[in-house]
Design a protein around this nucleic acid. Structure first.
Lengths: 208, 208
DNA sequence: TAGATTGTTAATCGATTAACAATC
DNA sequence: TAGATTGTTAATCGATTAACAATC
């Protein structure tokens, strides 16, 4: 392995899936697995799994394979799940509310520390044990609490100004549910898009 | 162009984004655009855009570029947005409810025709103008209404049996919000996964 | 006609797969 | 030790980028 070389986005996108499968295997009581077996279960090639893992280190043992629990933990560590970062959520519509309640942030390397909405009538509502705050106090809140990432569950037209405000306040990543492309204008921050429309359209294309 | 050759998944995943950008440009009153201009706006190369589009046909004109409105429409047609397919949604938790209410199905090539949940107490509730039905009557409903795709907003452990039941009933595609991988076991059907956990983990990885 | 920009072919780059020596 | 399976290098495959002739 060569830890110094650049790791491709495709590899990174596969890591959570490895993590998920290994977690299941561990829960089912399996203690070791070969790249071949894992490949069969995941619909990949053994070569690819070995190449992927060797971007980060030699986690296996010749003649034996990989220790399921240890590899699961290693990948969790590579992803950074053991070091929580602070997240805020903006936009408490039916989507924002569902995301706030549905996502197991702690298991995914985050701690949700604040929820905001511009609508005055929502201020003070309790969502997942947090009081909804007005976006007017977001500046102050961020200066005090220094969130690392922001979850944008707001309409397209609000996304860019809010993102730019947050970038100025030190937010370095966005989980973006709005239909706005932030990265073209801000290649410096990390943006993970969840574009439902795009996703559903690709499904529409495939069903012919 | 050569319409007969296989079209890569990467191209297909870019189509909705082209569609989105062209829609915005059209709404802003722009009538023509060159591949160079579009590339700059989208953070791609002009070459890539021309290659992508030429998978489906020669939509531009030398010396002129592309007609925004016409190209937007063409891509919509390629995606199949003008031919609606029938969709059902299973699982009316806070996520399923949010998806049902939040997504503009009609704009994305679908018509939502049924909503199901196994929880008796939800039967009869109205979600987005549709009555929630019990999963017990799903078989009968599908035989009558022949849905093309199913949206799975159910827990991991319920996903595989429900998917297999629906495959038998002729469902050919899944928009899968459960943390279960359906395609490994069923490579014959189209599955578009929305794995929130995976998505958020890649963001966690990138913020270091 | 001259300028612009496509459609398309060729060159490059990167990712996946295959092969195999190292080694547990 | 023999068998198994890794880590890693080499070969293949596919996707992106560059170049340019065709043409509006």
């Amino acid at each position: 392995m060569d830890t110094s070389r650049h790791i491709s986005d495709l590899v990174i996108k596969r890591l959570p899936r490895y993590y998920r499968f290994l977690g299941e295997l561990r829960n089912s009581g399996m203690s070791r697995i070969s790249s071949r077996e894992l490949a069969d279960k995941m619909g990949l090639t053994a070569s690819q799994i070995r190449q992927d893992l060797n971007c980060f280190g030699g986690f296996g043992q010749q003649g034996y394979g990989y220790n399921v629990e240890q590899l699961h933990e290693e990948i969790g560590h590579i992803l950074g799940l053991d070091r929580k970062q602070k997240a805020i959520l903006i936009g408490v519509g039916n989507l924002g509310r569902a995301i706030a309640n549905h996502i197991r942030f702690e298991q995914l390397g985050f701690q949700l520390i604040g929820i905001f909405d511009k609508k005055e009538s929502l201020t003070g509502d309790i969502v997942r044990n947090l009081p909804v705050r007005n976006t007017a106090v977001m500046d102050e809140f961020c200066r005090e609490n220094l969130p690392d990432v922001a979850i944008l569950c707001i309409p397209k037209e609000d996304a860019m100004p809010i993102a730019e405000q947050l970038i100025k306040l030190g937010v370095r990543g966005f989980w973006n549910f709005s239909h706005e492309d932030i990265s073209v204008k801000h290649p410096d921050v990390s943006v993970e898009n969840v574009h439902f429309g795009d996703s559903l359209m690709t499904l529409r294309y495939r069903i012919k």
